[in-house]
Structure formats: C-alpha cells, structure tokens
Simulated scan of single mutants.
Amino acid sequence: MLALMAATSPAPVTLVIGEEELLVDRAVGAVVAAVRAVDPEAERHELIGGKVEPGELAGLTSPSLFGGRSIIVVRSAQDLSKDVITEIVGYAKQPAEDATLVLTHPGGAKGKALVDGLKKAGAAVVTVPKITKPGERLDFIKAEIKRAGRSIAPDAAQALLDAVGNDLRELAAACSQLVFDTPAEHKTITAADVARYHRGQAAVSGFTVAESAAEGKAAEALEQLRWSLATGTPPVLIVSALAKELRTLAKVAGARNARGANLAQALGMPPWLAKRYQDRLRAWGPEGLSTAIQAVADADEQVKGAGVDPAYALERAVRIICASRNGR
C-alpha cells in the first residue's frame, strides 16, 4: 500500500491510524514522497497535536506569495483541542489545492471525533497493523530483508529477533545493517551471517543505553549513547528505547500490589524480567519517573524534526533520566 501511495497523487488530507511508530512514520513518509515527486521543493511543517493553536492550520495552508506546495504533518492528533478538531474537519471538506495535510492517530477512543469527522469529510485513511506476536515479528524481518532484494533463513530470522528484541525500529535498522554487511553473493542470509555481522552491533543498542540510564549509570549510558550514534544507530531508535524503558517502569509502578507470577501475568512478561523491573523501580518515585518521561518526550520531538542537534537532545534526556532516580 505504501509503495502504491508513493507512486500516485496523494490525497489532500490523509489520516494514518496505528500504534506502531515505525509503520506510521513510513505511511507519513509515503505521502511526503508522493508530494515531493510532484514538487521537490514542497515545504514540510511538523506539528504536535497538543501544541496546535486555533488558526495555525489556516496559516500554514494559505497560498504562499512565492508559490509551491506545503506539507503539514500533525502527530498525536488525538491530543488536538476541540476547537482545532472542528477547524481541521471543516478544512478536510474543502482542502486547499496547494497543501497536503497528514495526521497520525494511535486509534482508541481519545480523539474519536476527529477520526469520525475526517472519514465523513472524505479524507484518505491508512490503518497500520499492530505487531504483537513473535510470528508477526519474524514475518516483519523477512519482509524487511525481501525489500532489500535478499532472503533470510528461518533460523537466521529467529537469531536476529533474539539478538535485537521486539522493537520494530531496532529490527528494521538491524535488517538494513545486516544486508549492508553481508556480501551480495549471499542471496540468502544465514544464522552464521547474523552471528558474524550483527552480534557486536546488538551489544550497544538503544536498549543498552536505556537500561544503563534507568539504573542511573550516567557515565556508562552517555558513553554507550555516543558509541551507538557513532556506529550508525538512528537517534529515533534510541529515543524509542528510552521511552519503552520508562513506560515499562511506569507499568510496574501501576502494579505495585502484585507479586511474583501475578505481577508477571499483569505485565505480560516473563517472571525474571518482571522481577528485574521491580528491583529497578525501587530507585524511582512518581515525580522522578514523570520528569524522566517528559524529558524523553521532549527529546522525541527534537529528534523528529523540532530540533537541530539530535545527539545533544539525547544526551540531555539521558542526563535527566539519571538525575531523576530517587525523585519522590
């Protein structure tokens, strides 16, 4: 669907629904690519739902004195205010000729008025699937390798999944690096290729940085962060890992009364992993966790286009996370 979207004229308004950030970003990227295939100079504007002011969209979609198209991407559209939702739904009924509006929404009840309104207004809707099962992640790995013109043996796909974990961004980056590192004559990537070329990279992933930060090991986390960036790990993967680590701590905090198998069941993770997070949580209080989560949210915004130095944004987030432990 995304390839077809990029090859055709994009709809004036597109709503992308889904929780998988990587797939959502790819859907947004397909719309942007389709616009720039028509107008390479199209100007892109990135907005965050909760920060969009009434009238802001009208300003961005108004015809420019210098001509040219504009692309407005509104992320986390579920956080838009009621006034802005009304404005956007009204706009979708009569969109501007030289503007393309793309909104992302995770699904669910929050912001449902926007979703329903845009559908009724005739906006294009792209729904991306949520990948939850191990088999689906293996299929994702195979599809990523196939996109690069190669194939991967089943045991190699499993080895890659075991090495990297469940995060789709990490898996996509690992697949790309694996294809780059493996000689072109290896049409089918094997488990030996995974062991030979990927094991070292997996050792310093975004999750390694996130774990060190959550444990307050500032010097170690910063060193790992700099090495990870230097070896080509995309900043979005690292900020995603930081967010996942803190979300997991928050989930454990919400299940404080559960113990042992009950805790593991409530969190949907193996007992040993639930205990690890329970032990890690002892150094965290509600205020500190809230501060750390906000720092990662700020870094996420900076990394995705609002800032000019992703490395600085990530270092700042890591320092705040480490300093926020024991915050009560």
Rank of each mutant, 00 (worst) to 15 (best):
A7I: 09
T8W: 09
V24A: 08
V35N: 14
E46L: 15
G49E: 05
K51I: 08
L57Y: 04
T61C: 05
S64K: 07
F66G: 10
G67P: 01
G68V: 10
V84G: 10
V89A: 02
A99R: 06
T100A: 13
G107E: 12
V125F: 13
T127C: 01
K130D: 12
T132V: 12
P134W: 10
G135M: 09
G135N: 11
F140H: 11
I145Y: 07
A148W: 07
A153G: 05
Q158S: 11
E170H: 00
L171Y: 05
C175V: 05
F180M: 13
H186G: 06
Q201S: 11
A203D: 11
S205D: 01
V209K: 00
S212M: 11
A218T: 15
R226E: 15
W227S: 14
P235Q: 10
E245L: 08
L249T: 02
K251A: 14
G260V: 04
G260E: 04
G260L: 00
A266F: 00
A266S: 07
M269D: 10
P271D: 09
A274H: 06
K275A: 12
W284S: 03
E287G: 07
E287P: 05
A297R: 15
A299L: 10
D300T: 15
G307V: 10
D309N: 15
Y312S: 14
A313F: 06
I321K: 08
C322S: 02
S324M: 02
